[in-house]
Design a protein around this nucleic acid. Structure first.
Lengths: 326, 326
DNA sequence: CTGAAAGCGCTTACAG
DNA sequence: CTGAAAGCGCTTACAG
């Protein structure tokens, strides 16, 4: 039925070894290479990748494990990872964990069964803490979220710097009472809160933080609840784009005018932040660059498995819009 | 180094065949099954999926080929496909073609080399026309875009109905001179234009259409050019969310107030359409349902390869917002 | 229910 | 440069 390398060899009048070499980069005379190419064309041969992987012990496959591809941050990262992967002849297996440690464990196990070349992973805090790339059997590059120092390669945003940009901007606009909603499943939410707090404290101020599941739904609910309370901060910060979306919806539902009654800002320069109302002030992450860099680090790690773990820290860019103009 | 099925057999004191059966659904006595399970746990055995695929001739892998995962429509479809696939023990290979027939050909070839179980595909018009699932060697379910009738299974929106909903709404609002920007790479843009035209003609009216590359950039540019001309329609329709985004940006850049100076509507209920300005009137597609249905059709096709090609047509929902209130 | 053996389709030492 | 042969790690008839 389907044509195998043996059939090509027969058609070309050479051995299967020669066909294999001609298809790869093996040493083959021009004459035989021509014959093989003709036979491949004549038979319509297509190599069986499973056989190739089994025999060569190279899967040429990497795993990309994120919480939800529908988060525009991960969508963009994923596109970058796939571009970079296909460019070097690798396949990508995409997994959505929904911030669920059990799903993370399941997919990590799947990655082992696939004998992947490596994995790019945005883990929950719970999983990041007990992650041991050594015993996983493949290199891991963390994105967006960091593990304990020295544990794994990582590409992250400079959260302290970005939070500081946001806080300094808000303070310059005259806001003094600043708070925020932060995701509670990853290190990222915690780091961004820490950055906000540190920046505030440099000015002798406090920050009021609440931690929630990093979804629009949870954020909207928390926002409504907060806005119903007596003393709401003058400016609120969201720890990512999904939270920011929920907060905006919550503010609108509560009839709160932005920025007249409340300033709103956050992380992730998602499409809608430019277009909603007066525009939302955000930290733009270099999303494509994060994915591309993660892939690059993975390839470097494969080149040199022994080198010490390194963390690439990228800077965000403050995009000022109307949502924070007092 | 890595533990193979042979090692498990040795540890359990049984044959490799028994281990294989115990791991699968083969007939094994409770006693030996227990032994095997203990040996698997003790050795930390993880099956090699490449070997399993090669031997069993089942890849348990499906391909998902779309133009760009960053289009929220495909993002949502992809999530649905992946959920459904993992639920039945299948892997998904995601490919971005950028509406480029050459990339489409390359990825279809890759799918053949992967010996995929099937493919879910949103092809360009060029590729859809010459697509022959028979000689591809695996079943194909088209999404968003149709092929010539009877050629392949497909899950599509009822574009004529949706376009009609949009047009009737605009007419009811008092708009008579209606036009639009439509994507020129897929059947979808053409079908949505045809739907708009048909609905207009039922009222004895014409529609002014322009065809462009379905990207925000191309749409913004076309929009700016259009708005600089003397006679612009009273209401404009976008054939998808990316085009709509570009049109809104173009209108804003030109200082055109929506809906006061121009009504704007389109396809795809992307997040930002709810939040931008007065809100944009759109056709909401059942995005998750499209992905899930495509996967379901693929599984049915695998069950019954002989059944005739069928097309599932899903209805869109009109979401009226401020962008079309005269 | 169980095991020995063949074989899925390749790549890669090993000889020449 | 080329070929014959081994073997990657499994599953699955084939016997018993």
């Amino acid at each position: 039925m389907t044509v195998r390398i043996k059939d090509v060899a027969l058609a070309a009048g050479v051995s299967v070894a020669t066909v294999s070499r001609a298809l790869g980069d093996g040493p083959v005379s021009d004459e035989l290479r021509k014959k093989v190419e003709a036979a491949v064309a004549a038979t319509g041969y297509l190599p069986n990748l499973s056989a190739r992987r089994l025999r060569s012990q190279h899967s040429h496959t990497i795993g990309l494990i994120v919480s939800d591809i529908r988060n525009p941050f991960f969508t963009a990262v994923s596109r970058a990872v796939e571009d970079a992967a296909y460019a070097v002849g690798m396949r990508v297996i995409l997994c959505n964990t929904d911030e669920n440690p059990q799903k993370e464990a399941m997919y990590l196990r799947l990655m082992q069964e696939e004998r992947v070349t490596g994995v790019i992973f945005a883990p929950t805090r719970a999983t990041a803490q007990k992650l041991d790339p050594q015993q996983l059997g493949f290199p891991v590059v963390l994105i967006d979220r960091a593990a304990p120092p020295g544990h794994a390669d990582a590409v992250v945003l400079d959260n302290a710097e970005a939070a500081s940009l946001l806080v300094e901007h808000l303070l310059a606009q005259g806001y003094q009472r600043i708070g925020g909603l932060f995701g509670n499943t990853s290190t990222t939410g915690a780091e961004r809160y820490a950055g906000v707090l540190a920046a505030m404290q440099r000015h002798g101020l406090q920050a009021e933080a609440r931690f929630i599941a990093p979804t629009p739904e949870a954020a909207e609910q928390a926002m409504r609840a907060w806005l119903a309370e007596p003393a709401v901060p003058q400016a609120l910060i969201a720890s990512n784009g999904l939270v920011l979306l929920g907060m905006l919806r919550g503010a609108r539902a509560a009839g709160i005018a932005i920025p007249q009654q409340l300033a709103l800002a956050g992380f992730d320069n998602d499409n809608w932040t430019e277009l909603a109302g007066p525009g939302l002030t955000v930290i733009e992450q270099p999303v494509y660059d994060i994915g591309r860099t993660a892939m690059k680090m993975l390839l470097e790690r494969l080149e040199d498995p022994a080198r010490s773990a390194r963390k690439v820290v990228l800077s965000g860019r403050l995009v000022v819009r109307g949502s924070t103009s007092a």
